[in-house]
Each structure stands twice: as structure tokens, then as C-alpha cells.
Design a binder for these strands. Structure first.
Lengths: 230, 230
DNA sequence: CGGATTCTTGAAAGATGTCAAATGGAGTGG
DNA sequence: CCACTCCATTTGACATCTTTCAAGAATCCG
């Protein structure tokens, strides 16, 4: 997804006109290019909102123990809320090269305050982020690894939009390590789950970073665990 | 915490004047009294924002499998974002009798749009909710039960504000079942953790719903697990 | 005071984590 | 274009932790 399309998503919710929006926001934002593997340069002392023009990124929380936990994955068009350093230090790290627009929380609000449609778009995106975080929390609270991984694949498929009808191919730009840090499992467990699903014929793995969902219904059943105890 | 104090929190962020705020919001809100054990009557078809005047509540996500997972606990002064029914059906259920102000997402935005301070207060509260959800997600992603429970107690202590200096007493208005649904553990595991911490002298349990934190530093160490692998 | 619910404790089974080694793919250089 | 090397991923065996199932104790409420 390119810059124009990225802004388009933002623009659609707002009401259409793309160029004017970008121009309005520019004075309040810092445009930033972040190379794969690097973290966006945001001061740790206050909240930020980052609009992703391009690329893929992960929001990482570093625990006091020094371990990294991934809180969210984001792609072009997302507005990412990056908390100031509190109990955990947060960083937005690029999985693939990224172009970002970084706002201070207060500044973004000031920028969109006078434009009701724009304000609503920002509000909606923040709430979207909250709802995704909640879905993630629900997923993490379920114990079994099989449900977490199946649910993860389905979520990525929905967001990726590679909806090739019956058997969509999902791009996983992040490493197994990232997936494990996101799902609260080890890379070995992830790998075992992937293998098991492949043996069961639920998925195929054409390449290291690609997964094809062969049987979405069965995956949903695996994720939701109908009927039985959860 | 009573109604005035509840609004006060909201009011403080806004800039002080309490009565006018309540009056301004009233036309857009539905005031609702929810008895202990009951769920707030919110239509499932759209997002809501609920301001808690009073009481304690839990935000529950019902999975397709029919199991309940608790996504957040809330008390007076909180602005709770309640998502429309999607993958999970959400409900705001009262742990103790509650007085609520329920807004549609769009209506609340319309109500505060013209008041910059008010708008910022709402924005802040939504982002607060997001950040708490993230902290929770980080906590859930950590494997060990001891860390989850220790972290939970510390979080509740910070929010409860019963800061009796060295050994704060934390009120846990929710049942063990609720805690287990929140932390993704079984009630037995919760109970065992509580017992172990008591044996270690980290906490005392004056009553079923009260926990006294005898050694906060040790609890923090237990929660964060300094140095060693996480 | 008594019943019922909630919480606690115990023992065994299952699942995931840990450690170690082998495999395979991706990219590099010849 | 092919071979080689490196590193992420996969697989295996075992230890550990949580769940499960079952029973007993404590607390709350009427």
C-alpha cells in the first residue's frame, strides 16, 4: 500500500479530500522515515500518535526485566497510539521500512479540533485501536496455544485483506519471534502449532512468511472452540 | 466514591466546574442505575461510552464458545468504552450497584465537540483506557501465574488509592472467579498464588475481599521478575 | 444458628516451556 | 547459474507448571 492509498483510508473516514488533509496535518507532524529493524524516534516523555503512511510496524513494550512484549502490529493507514514510558517503555519498531507521521497527543488534538469530520476520524481510529487491543487481550486470556495461533492467523487474514476467496494467502511480515512475543508463547510452540495445522490440512506454508488458509471454517472452529469448555 | 466526587474527577481534567458539565452532558446521556450482578442495558449494535458515576463494574467479553472473559475492571470516574458486538459480545456488568451515564459514541463526541477542554478530557480518558488495556495485555502475555497475580494486586492497589503508607489494604470487590476470568487462570491457581504469597509474608488477607500488601517491594520484584528470564 | 456459596487444599494428568540438535530456506559469492 | 554458508525454523526429549477433578474448610447471608 502506497502513501496515497494510506492517506486515502484516513481520508475516506474523513470525507474524501486527501491532499488538503495531508497539508493540514503536516505543520503538526514530524514526517519520519524508519528503516526495517529501527524504532521510530519518539520522546519517551509523552504520548504520541503515529499515522502510518507506509510499511509494517510493531508496538513493543519493554518490561523492567528487559524482555520485549509485542502489544500490536500495524500497517499502512493505522493510527497508532504510543504511550509515554510508564511501567513499560514503549517503542514503535519497523518490521518493514516505514514512513510515519508522528504527532504529540496534544498537538494532534489541536490540529483536528476545528474539523468535526477529521476529529471523528481520529476518535474512531483510537477506539479501533482500543477494540483491537481488547480482542487481543481476550485471545491471550485463553489458555491453549492452538486457539491463540488459529485466532492470530484469522485476524491477520482479515486485516491483510488478501482475500483470495476460499483459500486466502496471509503475509506474515514479522518473524516467529515476533509472533511468539505477541501471543505470549515460545517460538517452538508457534512452530509446533503451525506444523500441526499443516498436517491437519488446515493451512499450507508456501514460503517462510506466507501462510495459506485452506479451511477457514475449521480454523474458526479451532480458534473459538465451539461447544466444549474453553 | 459518590456522584459528586465521581464527576469531580471528570471535572478536574476538564477544568473544574462540575454542575455545568453534568447539565451539558445530560441531554446526550441516558442515566442508568444498574444493580449488582446486572448488566447495563446498552444496545449491542453500536459502540457506547459509559461514564461511571458510582460503583464498580466489569467489562465482559462473551466468546462464541459461551465463555466469559473479563477485559477490564472499572470504578467511579472512569469512562468505559464498550464496543459493539463483533467477534465477541461485550457487556458492562455491575460488580456493585452502579450509577452510569451511557452515551452513544457519536453522541458523546457531538456533545463535547464544541468544548475544547471537555473534548480533551474525553480523549484522555479513552487513551487511558487503551493504555490500561495494553498493560493488561502485557501482563497476560507473561506466562507465570505468580507474576500475573502479583502484578494484578499492585495495579489494583495503585488504582484503589487505599495507600495506607507501607502496607496498603486493597479492596477486591470482584470474586475469585472474576479475577481468574481477568487473568486467564483458574480460580484454583489464583487461590494457590494468594496462599503462597501469604506464606511468604508478602500479603495478609484480613477478609475474603481484602488484601493487605505487606511488602510492596517484594511484590514488585515478583511481578517484574528482575534480572532472570521472564 | 444453619444452609449455601465461595474459597482453599490435595493429587494426578495434560500442556507448554526448556534445552539441544537437525533441517531448510535465503542470500552471497564464486 | 550453482554451491556454500548462515540463520531462522523445525523437531525431539524431558522438566515444570497449570489445569482438572475431587473433597474439605471458611465465610457470608438469611
Amino acid at each position: 500500500m502506497n502513501l496515497a492509498q494510506g492517506l486515502d483510508r484516513f481520508g475516506l473516514a474523513v470525507g474524501g479530500a486527501i491532499a488538503p488533509i495531508r497539508e493540514r496535518l503536516r505543520p503538526f507532524a514530524r514526517h519520519q522515515r524508519t528503516a526495517q529493524g529501527a524504532a521510530a524516534a519518539l520522546g519517551p516523555e509523552r504520548d504520541h500518535l503515529v499515522y502510518m503512511l507506509d510499511g509494517h510496524a510493531k508496538l513493543v513494550a519493554r518490561t523492567p526485566g528487559g524482555q520485549d512484549r509485542i502489544v500490536a502490529f500495524h500497517c499502512a493507514g493505522d493510527l497508532v497510539t504510543v504511550p509515554a514510558a510508564g511501567l513499560h517503555a514503549y517503542a514503535l519498531a519497523a518490521i518493514r521500512d516505514c514512513n510515519l507521521l508522528a504527532f504529540g497527543r496534544t498537538e494532534l488534538l489541536a490540529a483536528v479540533r476545528d474539523d468535526p469530520a477529521m476529529l471523528e476520524a481520529v476518535f474512531n481510529q483510537v477506539i479501533d485501536g482500543l477494540e483491537r487491543c481488547r480482542e487481543n487481550a481476550v485471545n491471550l486470556g485463553r489458555k491453549s496455544a492452538s486457539k491463540r495461533v488459529a485466532s492470530f492467523l484469522l485476524t491477520m487474514a482479515k486485516r491483510g485483506g488478501q482475500g483470495a476467496g476460499d483459500a486466502p494467502v496471509v503475509e506474515l511480515p514479522m518473524s516467529r519471534r515476533d509472533v511468539s512475543d505477541y501471543l505470549g508463547l515460545t517460538i517452538e510452540t508457534i512452530s509446533r502449532q503451525i506444523s500441526e495445522m499443516r498436517k491437519l490440512g488446515l493451512i499450507a506454508t508456501p514460503s517462510r512468511s506466507r501462510v495459506q488458509l485452506l479451511d477457514c471454517e475449521a480454523l474458526k472452529a479451532r480458534a473459538n472452540h465451539f461447544a466444549g469448555a474453553e
